[in-house]
Computed example of a mutant assay.
Amino acid sequence: MSQKIIFDTDPGIDDAMALLFAHAHDNVDMVAITTVYGNGVIEDCTRNACYINDTFNMGATVVQGAAGPLTRDPVGPTVVVHGEHGLGTVEVPLDYPINIDPRPAHEYMCDLARENPGEITLVAVGPLTNLALALQHDPEIVNNVKEVVIMGAAFGEGGHRGNVSPVAEANIHDDPHAADQVFCADWPVTIVGLDVTHQTFFTGDYLDELRRSAGEVGEFIWQVSRFYLKFYSEKVGVDGCHVHDPSAVAYVADPSLFGVRKGPVRVVTEGPAIGMTIQKSDERFYHHDEWSCFRSQQVCVEVDNQRLLQMYKDSINSLA
């Protein structure tokens, strides 16, 4: 039975790759796309979501969300990674029709979860502002959603500690206060972070092969990946890119791909380590312990990367 998801995203090159994956996989039913600032400003992210949804006949409801973080000053779009408007050298016309639900994203999330109790999974691959606003708007959402799956954070497994600071991953760093609220809330959260996304890699050859085999969808993925791969080549020195946002979709489609570690998670919200995520994974009593009073959450620490890559390829090819 397919999993109904609301996909909360800031498209974004790897977000676009993940949206197509969610659309393609039989185990995932993407009923809505909610947008958030992050890889671009909210207007660009919403326009990109509408364009992808329309172009590939996804049939999802698009809903616009937060334009900035809860408390901290905005970090700004990651233009160096995703280009001026989020999709690299693929630019959606600025006058592209924006057909969206009139509600703010956090209100839409609460309404849909209330109408479908126990059925909706929130999959968030950008800053977690919309989810934190949903918690504030209707605290009962923790009882109405099935689960929350996020792409973000880094816990140091295999040396994967951060990508925008030595200790912080970008989505968490963009709104650490929201992330701390989401991780501490009484709902089940699975965190698919750099600990596993850095273990899976779309090589240049892999993307070339998708271009040949997956028709219009493969061509689009190849085109948007050009800017991304240029960044990885110049800044990281590799031919390809890590599989960030699609890994969150992969978890929803098949959790057996991942090994997890359990324990409450907190986020550093100020100072030089802002955005750092820390999990208490032992049962020890500490005199100073602001973790143990919160729900234990799952952090992905292992991944069957070859099986994930094959799943992605098979799913995208099915759209051809």
Rank of each mutant, 00 (worst) to 15 (best):
Q64C: 15
V41A: 12
A179G: 01
G215A: 07
K313W: 06
W222F: 14
Y286L: 02
V182P: 00
G218Q: 09
A134S: 05
G237Q: 14
H23I: 05
A22F: 05
A24K: 10
A113K: 00
L194S: 12
P77K: 00
S247Q: 13
L112M: 03
M58G: 13
K146G: 02
E107M: 02
R72W: 03
D26E: 12
G162W: 00
I100L: 11
V149C: 09
S281P: 10
Y96W: 15
V79K: 14
G162I: 01
F155T: 14
D14Y: 09
P104W: 10
G38M: 09
S296Q: 14
H160G: 06
M30E: 07
Q298T: 11
D8H: 07
G263W: 02
G40M: 10
Q297A: 09
A248I: 04
T46L: 04
T121V: 15
V142L: 05
E234M: 09
N27E: 10
V148Q: 02
E119Q: 14
T71Y: 11
G237E: 09
G68N: 05
V63S: 06
L319V: 04
L87H: 09
T35V: 11
G162D: 00
A32M: 08
L19M: 15
P188A: 12
D8R: 05
S256K: 12
D73W: 07
I52T: 06
I6P: 03
P74D: 00
V148G: 00
A154R: 10
E119K: 07
R266H: 09
V189R: 03
I316L: 12
M311E: 02
N143T: 05
N130V: 08
A320Y: 07
D8Y: 03
A185N: 06
E283M: 05
Y312N: 03
H242G: 11
E107W: 01
H106E: 02
E91K: 15
S2P: 11
A66D: 06
D111F: 08
Q64L: 08
F220W: 06
H106T: 10
T34V: 10
I13W: 01
Q199R: 12
F155D: 01
K313Y: 12
A253C: 08
H244C: 08
D245W: 04
N99S: 15
N27H: 11
Q223W: 06
I141E: 02
V28I: 04
A18L: 04
V196P: 01
P166T: 02
Q310G: 12
Y232F: 08
F231D: 04
G86S: 09
F258A: 00
N171V: 01
A18Q: 00
E216S: 14
A124Y: 07
F285R: 15
Y228L: 13
V268C: 13
Q136R: 14
E43A: 01
V148T: 07
T78Y: 04
V62K: 00
E43Q: 08
R114C: 02
P77E: 07
G215L: 04
V236F: 08
S2T: 10
M30K: 00
I141K: 00
S213M: 05
D44V: 05
N27T: 05
V301K: 03
E91L: 10
V260K: 09
Y232K: 13
A124F: 06
A178M: 04
G240A: 12
A185D: 10
F227S: 05
A170V: 05
V81I: 01
E119P: 13
H25D: 15
N305R: 15
V238K: 15
V182C: 07
P102R: 07
Q298V: 08
